[in-house]
């Protein structure tokens, strides 16, 4: 009796398995990449699912770099990146033609806990940042803050946020010194750790920093002038670490994928962008 049952179960599984191998139902859109762009796309996906029954799957494990590599290897149909596609990327994925679709604006800020900010750490110059990154400056009192060791939480090198930071501070990615720091991965992790670690400093999306009262974005001193990461300076690109938020594709878009993009460009989509604290790209209205 048991063997009959077992054998029939096995048969059932085989049939189902083979059946699903053959029958490829309209697959969902796979999107992988930046944890900065992620929330926007997830929200958009929720809307599209309920309005147009389009299935979208989003994953932010690994950040922008994983977005590009998943796109290149065909695992995903869209990559999300929070930086520009660099020369190294183009070389690495030489056989892939990337098409970028701009869906929002953001910037990278150097972020400290509110406590540290209140204790006097309000801005840094690019050269000071370099010294901190290269571990030449190790205490906050050297920049007018309290007597507290500077703990730099570096974003994983694969993250878009990290690349934007590195380009702004060092000019070229290649010139960035290979220093080991404590690493954080997603925006969520960076924010959590900077709140809970005394003396911490990390790179974080400005939108995320603004939304949480427990962290504060530092201003940047560029040529002596204090530039705050606010909308005006980000749009004008005066703030050195401004960045574009992209969805990237490598093949011609199908109908569902077009729908997603159109939605993101539309007012409703841009409202989502704004809700999360990023800057809109269509200059319609707020």
């Amino acid at each position: 009796m048991f063997t009959k049952l077992f054998k029939s179960l096995l048969l059932l599984v085989l049939v189902l398995g083979l059946g699903s191998l053959v029958a490829q139902v309209d697959a969902s859109i796979k999107i992988q990449g930046s944890s900065t762009v992620g929330p926007i796309v997830v929200k958009a996906a929720e809307v599209l699912k309920s309005n147009k029954d389009i299935d979208i799957v989003v994953d932010t494990f690994g950040g922008s770099a994983t977005g590009l590599s998943s796109l290149a290897s065909g695992i995903a149909q869209f990559g999300m990146i929070s930086k520009e596609i660099s020369q190294e990327d183009k070389k690495k994925y030489s056989n892939v033609h990337f098409t970028t679709h701009l869906i929002g604006l953001d910037a990278v800020a150097l972020v400290v806990s509110k406590k540290l900010y209140d204790q006097g750490v309000k801005s840094l110059s690019l050269s000071q940042i370099r010294e901190i990154y290269e571990k030449k400056m190790t205490n906050w009192k050297e920049v007018g803050g309290p007597d507290q060791k500077i703990i730099f939480l570096n974003k994983e090198p694969g993250r878009g946020t990290w690349e934007v930071f590195a380009k702004a501070v060092y000019g070229k990615l290649k010139r960035t010194p290979l220093v080991s720091h404590l690493e954080v991965g997603s925006n969520e992790e960076a924010k959590s750790k900077v709140i809970s670690t005394p003396g911490a400093l990390t790179q974080l999306s400005v939108a995320w920093a603004e939304k949480d009262p427990r962290v504060k974005a530092l201003g940047l001193l560029v040529d002596g002038k204090l530039i705050l990461p606010d909308e005006k300076h980000i749009r004008s690109k005066e703030y050195p670490m401004s960045r574009n938020l992209y969805l990237v594709s490598s093949k011609p878009l199908n109908k569902d994928q077009r729908e997603l993009l159109n939605f993101l460009y539309s007012n409703a989509g841009q409202n989502i962008v704004g809700d999360y604290g990023y800057l809109r790209v269509s200059k319609d209205k707020n």
Partner: peptide, 11 residues
């Protein structure tokens, strides 16, 4: 266990 697994794919 980290993201290097994904990143390493092309190198």
């Amino acid at each position: 266990g980290g993201p290097e697994i994904f990143i390493s794919h092309q190198s």
